[in-house]
Simulated scan of single mutants.
Amino acid sequence: MKIIVSGGGTGGHIYPALSLIDRLSKNDEVLYVGSERGLENKIVNEKNINFKALKIQGFERKLFSTHNLKTVHLFLKSFKQSKKIIKEFKPDVVIGTGGYVSGAVIFAAAKCKVPTLIHEQNSVVGLTNKFLSKYVDKIAISFDEVRSQFPKDKIIFTGNPRAQEVLNEKKQFDLTQWGLKNELNTVLVFGGSQGAPKLNQAMIDSIEQLNKKDYQLVFVTGSKRFEEVSKALSNINVNKNIYITPYISNMTEILPQISLIVARAGATTIAEITALGIPSILIPSPYVTADHQTKNAMSLVNNEAGLIIEEKNLNSLNLVQKIDHVMDDNKIREKMKINSKKLGIPDAADRLFNVVKDLSK
């Protein structure tokens, strides 16, 4: 098969695309079309995947603005470029995983009469996928809650392919490299690649309490915020049971070692933790479209697989209380683990691959 994949802007759109590409056979030829400024330009190129970049940007909420006029111009230009790329590459299927760049690519593919598929990771439809749903052949979803937001006859439930990639990871990280113990229960606190300022502050305020715990913690600050966290902690003793790092690039190797994760509620995170059955305390980002992270989180909370703290209510007191609630009770942790695992889709990449294969016939 010859396949074009497009998705970008955030890791939530990029990593599912990469997981699907990883599932393809060696005989399949892949072209990834992303944006010049998006994270995908760096991440995809590092994977040595054939990559083409389009100059495109998203809309501002303010409808009439110079920025939005430029956005329309760039979309039309990218649409024409996408048609040219499609005619030259001659794909059997074109797949979009979200982000504004996929809008131009998938729309162009539909107009070129090439079979198309979009993958929606969240429990609330993104604007790009909402627009594309009228034109594509199939729509793969990861949450049942999103069914009512798409044309029923196009929907196929696949789950998020990132789940299968995490589950199939053969390497297991040695925590002693960080001065921690492999046999000790470990909490991972992770606010995303950019970091979450309010979560970081709650952790800074909690360090003296967490120093005394009989479990250990890995605190990921986010690359941009590591220096400010280090400065804030410069006069505070950090015990050997806590390891602080700006970023983890090999997350699939770390996660099997984790007893509890404190994190945002992005679709990729949900897919990863449910694949492995990791108990979670979720702090949804309030800065995302239609508050979709809260809806993602509630899919776990309603099934007793996770707990939630709204960011506006987050502080050191309730953060430590919630962590202790899970970590100090093996029965609670085991129940959450079982319930989380029930929600996982361990063969999500296979399911999505089969949809692609059917479309290519």
Rank of each mutant, 00 (worst) to 15 (best):
L217C: 15
V33E: 06
I258A: 07
N211M: 07
I270T: 01
A349F: 07
Q293D: 15
S102N: 08
G12H: 03
F143W: 08
N211P: 09
S316N: 15
R37D: 03
K240G: 01
G58R: 06
A140L: 02
D92M: 05
H119C: 12
E120S: 13
K84M: 09
R162G: 05
S25P: 05
M298P: 05
Y215K: 11
V229R: 05
A163T: 08
V94E: 01
K335E: 14
L184Q: 08
E36G: 12
T274M: 05
L255H: 04
V166M: 12
S82W: 11
S230V: 11
V187H: 01
F51D: 03
L167V: 05
P256A: 14
G34Q: 12
D28R: 06
K152I: 02
F190P: 02
V72S: 06
L180T: 06
N303L: 15
S148Q: 02
N41Q: 06
G7S: 12
G103S: 09
A163V: 09
L352P: 01
F79G: 08
A290S: 14
G344Q: 08
K335H: 10
I106S: 07
S280D: 00
K130T: 10
N182Y: 12
I261G: 08
V30C: 03
N239S: 15
I4W: 04
L210R: 07
Q194W: 00
N50R: 08
Q216V: 11
A349I: 11
E311W: 11
L31W: 08
I3E: 09
K84P: 08
H73N: 12
P284T: 04
K322Q: 12
K181G: 00
E40Y: 08
Q257W: 07
I141Y: 00
G8H: 10
V288I: 14
T245S: 13
A53I: 03
K171V: 10
L317V: 15
D28I: 13
D205A: 14
T294G: 14
I4H: 09
A163Q: 05
D144W: 02
E46K: 13
G306Y: 06
L317S: 10
I309V: 11
P115E: 10
H13P: 08
P161Q: 00
Q172A: 05
E334W: 12
I338A: 02
I236R: 15
G277R: 00
V44D: 11
I21G: 11
L175C: 05
V262Y: 04
Y32K: 05
I258E: 04
K170L: 03
I244C: 01
M336H: 09
K357H: 03
I308N: 00
A140R: 03
S299T: 14
D92V: 04
K55N: 11
V33S: 11
V125C: 14
E208S: 14
V326W: 04
T294F: 13
L180Y: 00
L24S: 06
N50L: 12
K181F: 04
L210H: 09
L343T: 09
A140M: 02
I338V: 13
Y135K: 15
T274N: 01
L175R: 07
L343Y: 07
A263K: 02
V356L: 06
T158A: 05
F64L: 09
G266P: 00
